[in-house]
């Protein structure tokens, strides 16, 4: 019903592109009267690593769960491997890997038993190009759990357990892998190992990966494309490089003039300085030009989301770059 309501207001999504691994147009999600997702557009090519970055409550998990087929969207066009996830059959499911945040499930199983058990389900979906499942010993080696192959799952440390979660997610050699906040609760060493694993998957197997995180550094490290979500909207996207390059246009200039402090934010720092010095000359003292970096802008955004106080600064920053594109 909501679909009908919206389809009047919003232009109908274009036709899906079958060559894309992910093709999302104008995705919307509404709980009651609250819009959780406000028109997300997103596409992914084979082998791409995409990070959904945003503060808690931005809509990352909802987006991923819709793409996984675990949740129905209110409106919009969603194609995952060319199929609407709401109608995805078991063959479709076999090509998707979902890395869940485990807690205490299968605690009594031994690591090797669990992986070979789950692998069995994928055997009928092997193709000439892709051997399924991933042989357990190779998989254990790939995720660094060989030494713990016979350990009970409940005995694993947090980091080892997360690696097992990844192993379960990739045992069927998925073409597309979803990771929802994969490094929450990991210590720095485990986090680093996890990052290496993600790189290996993307590089060696050309697995398309969609991951969510609220850690900018992690997104920068892992992703080809970062999509920044806030309030259910995409406020910025681009490669880590593009994002930071775009942001360097915004600078904060501080100086004192006749003992009085001034602060000015501008996109054209050089032009502003030229005018400033021409006008006031030697009276300008303690001049300081500071370029806002990606982290500043992102932190401003997180701060707004978490305090609920919207100064609009964060969104202004992102919007400026959008215009600059």
């Amino acid at each position: 019903m909501t679909t009908v309501e919206w389809s009047e207001a919003v232009e109908a999504p274009r036709n899906p592109d079958d060559h894309l691994v992910l093709d999302v147009r104008n995705l919307r999600m509404r709980y009651g009267t609250v819009d959780v997702l406000n028109g997300i557009d997103l596409t992914a090519q084979r082998g791409e690593v995409i990070a959904l970055l945003g503060p808690n409550g931005a809509g990352k998990t909802t987006t991923i769960e819709i793409l996984e087929g675990f949740r129905l969207p209110s409106a919009g066009l969603v194609r995952v491997l060319g199929v609407d996830p709401a109608r995805g059959d078991e063959r479709w499911r076999a090509q998707i890997g979902v890395v869940l945040q485990s807690w205490r499930d299968h605690g009594r199983w031994r690591v090797r038993d669990l992986l070979s058990h789950i692998g069995e389900y994928y055997a009928p979906y092997a193709t000439d190009q892709i051997q399924r499942p991933w042989p357990v010993d190779d998989l254990l080696a790939a995720v660094g759990l060989t030494a713990h192959a016979n350990a009970r799952v409940s005995r694993l440390s947090g980091g080892q357990r997360r690696r097992l979660d990844v192993a379960v997610g990739i045992v069927g050699r998925p073409g597309l892998l979803f990771l929802d906040e994969p490094t929450v609760g990991l210590d720095p060493a485990a986090r680093r190992e996890f990052h290496e694993l993600v790189h290996r998957l993307a590089d060696l197997d050309h697995t398309t990966i969609l991951l969510s995180t609220h850690d900018l550094a992690e997104a920068e490290k892992l992703a080809d494309l970062i999509i920044i979500l806030a309030n259910g909207r995409i406020i910025a996207q681009g490669s880590p490089d593009q994002l930071s390059r775009r942001l360097t246009t915004d600078a904060e200039i501080r100086w004192t003039c006749d003992g009085q402090r001034h602060v000015h934010a501008t996109m054209d720092a050089t032009g502003f300085l030229r005018d400033l010095l021409r006008e006031h000359g030697d009276r300008v003292q303690e001049l300081e030009v500071r370029r806002a970096n990606l982290e500043d802008a992102y932190l401003a955004l997180v701060h707004e989301e978490e305090t609920g106080i919207r100064t609009g600064r964060a969104e202004r920053v992102w919007q400026q770059q959008e215009e600059n594109r």
Binding site: E90, I96, V98, L100, S102, D105, H106, Y121
Partner: peptide, 12 residues
């Protein structure tokens, strides 16, 4: 504990 969700994420 999520055992069922894991089953759901696996074909059949």
């Amino acid at each position: 504990d999520g055992t069922l969700l894991r089953a759901k994420a696996i074909p059949n």
